[in-house]
Design a protein around this nucleic acid. Structure first.
Length: 535
DNA sequence: GGCGGAAAGC
DNA sequence: GCTTTCCGCC
């Protein structure tokens, strides 16, 4: 019966699933690897076998009912090695979640609580498929089904996992896959679809712009240093029709172009615009975007490139991410951006003038070899965000999908609190919207990218400009050649000869670029020229 | 049943 | 920092 208590909840190897540390820390518990109650609750909710003990409330987004408080407490107690655990204590723990906005109480309903997935899961698992109860099994209810896929840390120790049973008499070893399989066994009717869209929108809508300082914010801040993402159980899991992710965002191409979210979600800009995720590789966001609008995708990617450029991020930064997270982006990365990375990231040798000007920044100049760690450290600190009780927002069913895209815009622009830069969910990864550089500021005003994280950057413009600027530099160098002092002219001449060398280097650079980005870079020549000229 | 303060434990 | 434990209060 008693399976023992695990201290390290994190499944290691044996479980077959590996999760990022922050997945165990959840919203905020640095250093704590103990499973958290809400994780536990979710896991129980995820499992069919506990439906009699705890279950999602029909028709209520994220709401669940503890049908057997004592049993839940017992399970929790066993999980935590607290035999004295009872519902009173457990409920106290749950009440602590109120302030964190992880949970709130459904008033008037006994033993009924409601998850705030907006802050709890959505930010971390935007691809999670949230479905209203009834449409899916216990394991994939109003909760992000990702809980199935994501497979919250096993209720018990890895060893117990290995044994396949953690709870008395129950086949808790049921794999997440099995759980997921159940999903497809149930049909989603039209009304549910409505609910879905509504729920999703509500979730999405509330997620970013109104994300209170609560969980989401704190959590993400804390996860800042963590590598995000491995929300996907196994790299081997590709297209899983039962997965909430549909196609797992694995390095497969298919994942990019076909990520069925939820029946109601489809791949609307809404969903992704509203779900900036720290744990979400921009690749996925972009992939989804790309899916519905290649042009916008392009812009988005360009913006990414800009981010990289602005912060001297190296493409090498990306490989640091779990392989199955980053790769998706690459195949779709527009050549323009591809090229930008190696060049911009490897700032050309500066002339004395530039050297002097940039001297102050020298410490921050990073060679591609050094870049990996940089990421978002230069991003402005998160500013205060509006705090609003998200649960109060009940979108009308009509305003939903049709206006979702529009709402994206509005919310992005109207709600100052949701500046991508401020979005804590971005803190953790490379593609945080950079502090708007001067040259992008202008474009930001004129563009209204549907992607929050690109909001202030007009990628196309910026990208063009990058290229253009270099071209101009090179051209102007030639034009002014004559006016140069003989000494300098000689130098230029010499540089011209060296250009061949540089070209070779460029070749290497491009190689790397291609390897890293998988695409070729048209901008390189101009930049290389500039490099040569400057040197 | 539910809430939340307080203190202690981990 | 999160949870447990205890407890008074509503």
């Amino acid at each position: 019966m008693k399976t023992g208590c695990s201290i390290g909840e994190k499944p290691k190897g044996g479980g077959g699933y590996h999760f990022p540390d922050w997945a165990y820390k959840a919203e905020s518990s640095p250093g704590s690897r103990q499973i958290q109650l809400w994780h536990f609750i979710l896991e129980l909710l995820q499992k069919e076998e506990f439906r009699h003990v705890i279950a999602w409330q029909q028709g209520e987004y994220g709401e669940f009912v503890i049908k057997d408080p004592d049993e839940v407490a017992r399970l929790w107690g066993r999980r935590k090695c607290k035999p004295q655990m009872n519902y009173d204590k457990l409920s106290r723990a749950l009440r602590y979640y109120y302030n964190k906005q992880i949970l709130h109480k459904t008033k008037g309903k006994r033993f009924t609580y409601k998850f705030n997935f907006n802050k709890l899961v959505m930010p971390n698992y935007p691809f999670i498929n949230i479905r209203p109860n009834g449409a899916v099994p216990q394991s994939a209810p109003p909760v992000p089904t990702a809980s199935s896929h994501f497979h919250f840390p096993p209720l018990d120790s890895p060893s117990e996992d290995a044994h396949g049973s953690r709870f008395s008499g129950n086949s808790t070893a049921q794999s997440s896959r099995e759980s997921l399989n159940e999903v497809t066994d149930r049909k989603t009717n039209a009304s549910e679809q409505d609910d879905l869209s509504s729920d999703w929108r509500r979730s999405a809508d509330l997620l970013a712009p109104r994300n209170p300082m609560g969980l989401g914010h704190r959590a993400l801040q804390k996860h800042k240093s963590d590598l995000m993402l491995p929300v996907f159980p196994m790299p081997g899991m590709y297209a899983d029709p039962h997965s909430p992710f549909g196609l797992s965002p694995l390095p497969g191409r298919g994942s990019l172009l076909n990520i069925p979210i939820s029946p109601a979600l489809s791949l609307t800009p809404t969903v992704f615009s509203y779900s900036p995720s720290p744990g979400l590789s921009p690749a996925f966001q972009s992939s989804s975007c790309f899916n519905f609008n290649p042009e916008e995708m392009k812009h988005y990617l360009q913006a990414q490139a800009c981010s990289v450029l602005n912060y001297h991020l190296s493409p090498r930064t990306f490989p640091r991410y779990p392989g199955f997270m980053m790769p998706p982006r690459q195949p779709h990365f527009p050549p323009e951006e591809q090229s930008s990375f190696p060049i911009k990231l490897q700032p050309p040798p500066m002339g004395r003038k530039n050297r002097e000007r940039d001297q102050s920044q020298d410490e921050e100049q990073i060679t591609p070899q050094q870049t990996p760690v940089v990421t978002t450290m230069k991003v402005e600190p998160i500013s205060a965000m509006k705090v609003e009780p998200i649960s109060d927002y009940e979108p009308t069913s009509d305003e939903d999908l049709d206006s979702s895209a529009e709402k994206d815009f509005h919310s992005d622009e109207e709600d100052d609190s949701f500046s991508p830069r401020e979005d804590p969910t971005r803190q953790g990864h490379t593609f945080i919207k950079p502090a708007t550089p001067s040259w992008t500021a202008v474009s930001s005003a004129s563009s209204r990218p549907p992607y929050p994280n690109v909001a202030t950057v007009d990628p196309s413009e910026s990208s063009d400009r990058v290229t253009k600027d270099y071209s101009v530099d090179a051209a102007s160098v030639e034009k002014k050649e004559d006016s140069l002092p003989p000494k300098l002219r000689l130098k230029r001449l010499w540089n011209g000869e060296r250009q061949t060398e540089v070209a070779e280097d460029r070749g290497e650079c491009r190689k790397v670029s291609c390897i890293v980005n998988g695409l070729r870079s048209p901008v390189i020549p101009a930049e290389t020229k500039a490099v040569a000229a400057d040197s």
